[in-house]
Design a protein around this nucleic acid. Structure first.
Lengths: 188, 188
DNA sequence: TATGACATGTAATCTGTTACATGATTAG
DNA sequence: CTAATCATGTAACAGATTACATGTCATA
């Protein structure tokens, strides 16, 4: 009834189902749109993932009756599923995750507001910023060390690696600023 | 003797071995450095991957004798392995790959110069640029469509998705410029 | 009536993760 | 002598990819 930890795709499904109940097919369509193309929209990925979530009690699917009559199962988040989502959103961002699983950090941030409110979205941003501030200096230092030995293309690729994190850091500042402004207007 | 296509990790190994022969342990150390942390440095990933490459005839490992005496296998690229690397480097960048496998594009670029010369590095950059120029407008269009329905954090996350590709596009311009300058100096 | 979109699934295969296991060599 | 590092592997398991299989409904 639990044991195995939920994968990135699993959380993507939970997050989408938190926004609104949906069938497997509808979820697949979301994943085939440009914004979520990083996740597979193939049935061989989605349906087994939904099954796992249901077996863990995080979602529940019920066959839709009435109207169209073609059988489809509508999945809904269970209370336990919502709790799991909340725990996930609150996870601190580690430098490790920044490198190996950036995609999931953004997923977390994108869903954070709907799952746990604007305050939690800001917490994610601050956590991300902190991770960047430990990772970037380490990367820059390694760049200096290795620079001499690499080819031009190797150096350029490494430089982009650093740049992309700088770009991300800049974005976190702006995103935090956006939330601060909104906070003043909305809840004074 | 062939069949299964080489994975991202496989090409990373081939690329490193093209630079110089190395043992599994040495390769693991490269993957544990910040620049290549995206790949696993665990023995359960590296050693089986090396085995697969050897079975495909792309590399060859020989037990080092002399000196230290602790047994270690030094792997070398075979001619067939070099050919495979060249083919890989020459692969055009697809928008699909841009989204699902960006990491591998950079790997390809980083190794391109050493494997097939500066001209091929420029080809990779141009191919990447072309892919960006079809993907970015599609992303922007979807952003406009979806914007109204999403939460603030959802919109900010999407906006970063677009931004990071813009940042990448900008970098390709600079990288191409760097190669053009170098071309004039080196080979007139 | 045939095509395409809707809708759900299964099976084979491959790869990576995690964790364990083993042993040689060097530095303190 | 003992801890750390060098060095290589294996085994169980989870998850994704690909391809196949099946059937409904609307529409041209």
């Amino acid at each position: 009834m639990k044991a195995s930890r939920t994968s990135s795709l699993g959380y993507a499904l939970l997050g989408l189902l938190q926004q609104q109940p949906a069938s497997g097919y509808e979820l697949r369509k979301v994943f085939s749109a440009a914004a979520m193309k990083t996740y597979s929209d193939s049935p061989g990925a989605i349906y087994p993932a939904l099954e796992r979530l249901e077996q863990q009690g995080l979602i529940h699917g019920s066959v839709e009756k009435g109207a169209g009559l073609r059988r489809r199962r509508i999945f809904r988040l269970t209370p336990s599923g919502l709790a799991e989502l909340r725990k996930w959103v609150a996870r601190p961002v580690t430098p490790e995750e920044l490198v190996r699983n950036q995609e999931e950090i953004f997923l977390r941030f994108a869903f954070s507001e709907g799952v746990a409110g604007p305050a939690s979205a800001r917490v994610v941003l601050q956590s991300l910023q902190a991770a960047l501030k430990t990772h970037l200096p380490a990367l820059r230092e390694e760049f200096e060390r290795v620079q001499a030995t690499a080819s031009v293309s190797g150096r350029l690729a490494f430089a982009y690696g650093i740049r992309s994190y700088e770009c991300l850091l800049k974005w976190t500042h702006q995103a935090i600023a956006a939330y601060e402004k909104k906070g003043k207007r909305g809840a004074p």
